[in-house]
Simulated scan of single mutants.
Amino acid sequence: MERSSQPRPGRRPGIQVGRVFGVPLYLNASILLLALLITVLYGQLAGQRLQLSPVGGYLVGAGFVVSLLASVLAHELGHALTARHFDIGVRGITLELLGGYTEMDRDAPTPRVELLVSLAGPAVSAVLGVAAVAATLALPDRTVADQLAFQLAASNIIVALFNILPGLPLDGGRALRALIWTLTRDRHRATEVAGWAGRALAVGTALAVALLYAIDVLSLLALPLTALVALTLWHGAGQSIRISRINRRLPLIDLARLARPALTVPTGTPLAEAQRRGDEAEATASQSVALLVTDSAGRPVAVVDPAAAAAVPPARRPWLAVDAVARSVADLPTMPVATQGERVLETVQAHPGAQYLVTAGEDVVGILHIADLAQLLEPHRKMNT
């Protein structure tokens, strides 16, 4: 599957192990669990079928792990190279427990590009599956090569078929979004519809897992992994719905109105006095203000951290300088007051923090609090205070 960068601010994809066609390749730590499970389970199965020693069976299992990871990588390269063909930057490919994902630096600009990029991965898996089927038919029965070819055929065909199911975060969900986007000309609505379709698929997958286990088609060992697939689908679909709702509200971001006005207090001012001035300003302006600490020349040097100030016992506040609960302006990211919605979100993702300086030229005109931005973008989401 492929993902844009926006849903996962600050996430570390894993350990970089190299580049493929110029695309950074990462391995998530969860891939070790997948490798161990397949090596042991498939190694035992192959050893029994081919009458190999335990060591021989595990070596075959390890060979299958390598072949399977190569297939997943080929699937993701289908997405990545198609995206680059349409001038969409690719940040990297990550292989993890349930397969892999391709991270792009922006979303597809048109429904057609979205459709082509989303279906490129399943198409590669389908081609690999057909090639493996042909190899299986051509190779002698009950040989190591025959077994590996058969398993690769089965796994690639299953991956291709499962990924084209019409629901996010699967590739078929991206294709469904492209079709709805074409019909409605509303990308956000298309994402929500495809996200809810993904949740329906997650529920269907969970029910199918339970049914297959009840009729002894799935073993107890396979149950947790297949159940994890259903949970991952549900979570990914929910994230897609959430991001679509956030993106719909991005045009509402106006830093001139959203940033808290900066009330300056001289360095060395007691915290209690600074808070008193802040309360008076808020009562007059009927909105929250931010306390900006200035030096003797009136230059801004720090911003009071509300959480740090609130943690100071009231009895100490008259004796504690405001500087003790302030952060240097040099440590805070800066945004010009004219910054538009999507650019604001990109800055927050690139520089996670609680406060941001909002400037007009060289002047600090306000302080953006991340809680205020979150409340604007997700007004119905419960925020931690």
Rank of each mutant, 00 (worst) to 15 (best):
R3H: 13
Q6V: 11
R12K: 13
Q16R: 15
G22Y: 10
S30K: 08
L34C: 05
A35V: 00
G47D: 09
L50E: 09
L59Y: 01
G61E: 05
A62K: 01
V66W: 00
V72T: 08
L73R: 00
A74C: 10
A83T: 05
I93E: 01
L98S: 06
L98I: 06
G100I: 02
G100K: 00
V113I: 15
V113S: 09
V117P: 03
G121S: 07
N156M: 06
P169H: 00
R185V: 09
D186S: 07
A190S: 11
W196T: 08
G198Q: 04
T205C: 13
Y213H: 15
A214E: 11
V229D: 02
A237Q: 08
G238K: 04
I246S: 03
L252W: 08
L252Y: 08
A262P: 04
T269H: 09
P270A: 12
E273L: 15
A274G: 12
A283G: 13
T284Y: 13
T294I: 15
V303E: 00
A307M: 12
A308M: 13
A309R: 06
A309P: 10
A311V: 05
A315W: 02
A330D: 14
A338I: 10
L345S: 00
G353M: 03
A354W: 07
Q355L: 11
V358D: 01
A374D: 01
R381F: 06
K382Y: 07
M383N: 05
